[in-house]
Design a protein around this nucleic acid. Structure first.
Length: 634
RNA sequence: GCUCACGUAGCUCAGUCGGUAGAGCACUUCCUUGGUAAGGAAGAGGUCACAGGUUCGAUUCCUGUCGUGAGCACCA
């Protein structure tokens, strides 16, 4: 007798051990039909799994949170099967589920090309239509290795060899195709309906750049066509928002061949930058930071002392003069320590806050460069706090509140917090790391924050809090950080005099809210799709005359608004009003001010919002007040 | 850095199975003075990324370099 407990705590008994499928059938035929897999005592299993003991059982259907992963994993197998049908001799390696889909990595002489995908996808649809049952079997290690070696699947055999000997090896077979897999899988290939192959790419075997390059095929898979379509639409939306494209359309910046990984900011883009910089400068000021400015090149000896030479020299640029070697700074912290060190500090001075819009240069690998998002020369809103251990918590708490306020002002409200813990290799003893990690935990707790911990992800000199922001189309970006550092002050000889007249090393906190200005502007561009709120827009309003007769009035109006500090231009070109409106609408200008004879007579402007909404005509000063109200608080 | 793909006018792209190139938009000039998303005409604009090679001849084929894109690796 087997007793099965269902999620609603009802029980069913079976005379002999039932399969998950039989349990589902005993509840209802509809459920049996909808079932994809099962959960036995919280563990995901196939429908065909025999339950040989009393257990809690849950039937996984499309409505279950686990359904997508199962479908994606099975679709990866479907891909591998199609590839082996069409391209015999291709070896399979791994095919995991990833965000929004899956991939399968293959070993073959000729990598797959995008042109190969339609035929493979068609074959996948064919196999899905065949509705091949997917069956699970168990083999011993040696049997499994022999099985795959006989098939010529050397990589699979290697994977098995790396699995601990005591683990059970399960194989999944659908038609002529068998793959090693933990499972579970859908009961038959007919359950895979909504998928699409997306792209091909090279990837190293086992993620190691010393190994051979495999050919990966990426795909996406969903529960139904509607979800698939929604996902593809979202990709299109992301493409439309691409900051490189909008950057060109709105004439914000450009990049060119002679300067890989660096940015030429155009007047519009630099105006946007300045709005952000001036805003952040006020944040520095209002939260007690003193702004400093440190040199870009410093003698290499300083970088040896700080530990950067050992840990980071491959990513640094060097330059020489008169037999001395200088490093172009990749980070601002050593510079700030020099400012701190120039003079004596009492414990009464602490905490000391230095802030800088520090330009850093890092020799990023060429393959990592990407528009504004990953550049070689960038500017950080970088701040360092020199404080005592006792002050860490209140400093972190204050920073936390500040960071959240900044994100809110820029239009980000969905923020996840992560705590990156000690990595390998690292500086300092475990004791010091315990202290640093716990200080951050205590501070987060004091803020009432929820966070996720990421073991091994910290910086070599200390753990860090990371702020991950979700943008308007649901992508997340890591922006701010707060790091505790017990090492750098000691290495660079930062000291203060305590109450007993003893010299001690302060703790150093590294913090940034927007991180790289370049990257932040890229994120802002994509988040707003170029439709910047008025306080950030490079041009806030354009005055448009209808005919030459109002040219003087239009120019005066634009001038009057500009003198109030608003970013306003006049477009006096001899073009029809519709033409000018179209052009400035495409330029995403928040307000268009149309002036004809009527407006000139009354000293008004007719206001058109970016959305196309007609806000009616208003006095010039009325419009100015309206725009100021919109931009004023920031 | 690795793999694959790509690089043609300011932008978006077409094209040449090897005989030195074309469209739309933008730009210039002229006409037009028009009330809320493209008025008309004419004109100018390209060393087809760069360097070699093959060829009577290369933008086209081959090799290399640089850059870009996607992914991988990297992101202290």
């Amino acid at each position: 007798m087997i007793t099965i407990t269902l999620p609603d705590n009802s029980r069913k008994t079976f005379d002999s051990p039932p399969t998950v499928r039989e349990v589902a059938a005993s509840i209802g035929t509809g459920l049996a039909k909808a079932a994809l897999a099962g959960k036995v005592d919280g563990k995901l299993v196939d429908l065909s799994r025999i339950i040989d003991h009393d257990a809690r059982v849950e039937i996984v259907t499309e409505k279950s949170p686990e359904a997508l992963d199962i479908i994606r994993h099975s679709t990866a197998h479907l891909l591998a099967q199609a590839v082996q049908r069409l391209h015999p001799g291709t070896q399979v390696t791994i095919g995991p589920v990833i965000e929004n889909g899956f991939y399968y990595a293959f070993a073959r002489k000729e990598p797959f090309k995008p042109e190969d995908l339609p035929a493979i996808e068609a074959e996948m649809k064919k196999i899905a239509a065949e509705a091949l049952p997917v069956t699970r079997s168990v083999k011993s290690r040696d049997e499994a290795i022999r099985f795959f070696r006989d098939l010529g699947e050397e990589y699979k055999a290697q994977i098995i060899e790396s699995i601990p000997a005591n683990e059970e090896l399960s194989l999944y077979t659908q038609g002529e195709f068998t793959d090693l897999c933990r499972g579970p899988h859908v009961p038959d290939t007919g359950r895979l309906k909504a998928f699409k192959l997306m792209k091909t790419a090279g990837a190293y075997w086992r993620g190691d750049s010393h190994n051979e390059m495999l050919s990966r095929i990426y795909g996406t898979a969903w529960l139904n066509d509607k979800d698939l379509k929604a996902y593809l639409t979202q990709l299109e939306e992301a493409e439309k928002r691409d900051h490189r494209k909008i950057g060109r359309q709105l004439d914000l910046f450009h990049q060119q061949e002679e300067a890989p990984g660096v940015v030429f900011w155009h007047p519009n883009g630099w105006t946007l930058w300045q709005q952000v910089e001036q805003y952040m400068r006020r944040v520095y000021r209002e939260s007690g930071y003193q702004e400093v400015r440190c040199p870009s090149i410093l003698d290499v000896s300083l970088w040896k002392k700080s530990g950067h030479w050992d840990n980071y020299k491959d990513n640094m640029f060097f330059t020489e003069s008169e037999k001395r070697t200088y490093a172009v700074k990749p980070m601002n912290c050593p510079g700030h320590v020099q400012v701190y060190n120039d003079g004596l500090h009492s414990y009464r001075d602490l905490p000391i806050h230095y802030g800088e819009f520090g330009s850093c240069t890092r020799n990023e690998p060429s393959g990592a460069l990407h528009g504004l998002m990953r550049v070689r020369a960038f500017t950080q809103d970088d701040g360092h706090i020199f404080c005592t251990e006792e002050q860490i918590e209140s400093e972190v708490t204050a920073f936390h509140a500040q960071a959240l306020a900044v994100y809110r002002d820029f239009g980000f409200t969905d923020i996840a917090i992560k705590l990156a813990l000690r990595p390998e290799p690292r500086l300092g003893s475990d004791q010091v790391w315990d202290k640093a990690e716990n200080a951050l935990r205590d501070a987060l707790r004091a803020c009432g924050a929820q966070w996720e911990e990421l073991p091994g992800e910290g910086a070599f000199y200390g753990p860090k809090i990371e702020y991950h922001l979700k943008d308007a189309i649901g992508r997340t970006w890591q922006l701010g950080t707060m790091q505790v550092d017990f090492m750098m002050p000691e290495r660079l000889g930062a000291e203060y005099v305590d109450e007993q007249s003893q010299k001690r090393h302060p703790v150093m906190l590294h913090r940034a809210i927007v991180g790289s200005m370049e990257r932040f502007l890229g994120i802002l561009i994509e988040h707003h799709a170029g439709n910047f709120p008025a306080w950030l827009a490079p041009v806030q309003a354009v005055v448009l005359n209808i005919t030459d007769a109002q040219a003087d009035y239009a120019a005066q109006a634009a001038d009057a608004l500009a003198r109030r500090g608003l970013r306003v231009r006049a477009d006096l070109r001899n073009e029809k009003i519709g033409y000018k409106i179209r052009e400035h609408t495409l330029q995403k200008v928040p307000y268009l001010l149309v002036v004809g004879d009527r407006e000139r007579e009354k000293g008004t402007v007719s206001v058109r919002a970016r959305s196309g909404e007609d806000l009616g005509s208003m006095a010039l000063s009325g419009f100015a007040e309206r725009l100021e109200a919109e931009t004023g608080p920031r």
